[in-house]
Nucleic acid binder design. Sequence first.
DNA 1: AATATCCTCAACCGCCTTTCC
DNA 2: CGGAAAGGCGGTTGAGGATAT
Length: 324
Amino acid sequence: MGRAPCCDKTNVKKGPWSPEEDAKLKEFIEKHGTGGNWIALPQKAGLRRCGKSCRLRWLNYLRPNIKHGEFSDDEDRIICNLYANIGSRWSIIAAQLPGRTDNDIKNYWNTKLKKKLMRLLNPTSQIGPQHQATSFSSLLQATALSPSTQLSSSYSYRRSNHIYYGLSGPVNDPTSFSSSPLSNSSFTSNSVLQPEESFVSPMQHNYQVKESLLMVGGEASCSSSDGSWNNQINHVKETEYGYIASNSEQSGLQNYLHTGIEEDHKLLLPSGGAEEWSHEKQNGFWVDNPSDYGFEEIKQLISTSSCNNFLFDDNKTEEKIMYY
DNA sequence: AATATCCTCAACCGCCTTTCC
DNA sequence: CGGAAAGGCGGTTGAGGATAT
């Protein structure tokens, strides 16, 4: 016995939406909202559609500020970098591209961008469709976009006898591409996928680069700038990172976490409190917008925490911590 | 001009996760 | 706490338009 269907399949219309249906759905949602119940919505709106179908139509096509049309080079780069870091998690990727939907990005990747990248990575080969997926993943693996060199989008430090090991530079940073393999305004094959050595920063000679740091996080980060708190919090939960946010961000976060928020740029902690998040199973702390904090505050945080890994969101902090 | 083939993308399907009771 | 319902997501499909022959 399988799962019960979400609606009466014999009584719902399928296939492309007519302009009339679009208008009905749009008008209803603009007037009443979704009411938090997509399943009940079509009946209320007078539509013979499955609730899921309505949801999809709204999210992918009808809701305001949807961007249609060509993807920019910047968008290409973001997609490529995020795909290399987190794979086909389209909703997370979409959260980084305001106005784009996960469906859009998925289609674009599967039909165009993957081929575009394949051509750049391997301009001479004629790869048939049946081999494309395998070849593509092996190409990714053979390059800086491979999982073995992937890194979270920020700067990682491991505390060990008061020495901070730094892996510098925005390595594979999906949202900041100053050293990105795809950083030119148009794709050029000679700029694609730098060798691992190129990740070494000028400051590196002072500090030992620990390969284990590459494992910190294991996820691309999400910026809060587009207000995509939901995905961001999922990310934080998934990676078991504590999250340190400034006041301005806390109101958004509050909606999603049960927190122990303290005043003025203090730790934002889950209900278990600091001890729970300092437990050794905790991967580390994510420090968003570290420039919002005093350096002393960050120093204190590091020295009082039993946690070894911190992710910072900018390289000014990286530099300071290096010399600390 | 007719036909075949390819390409795009909206929409569906089914599974997993989250929320609610 | 467990089960059901709903939400959310990623993979896949197929209609229709574009292009090649």
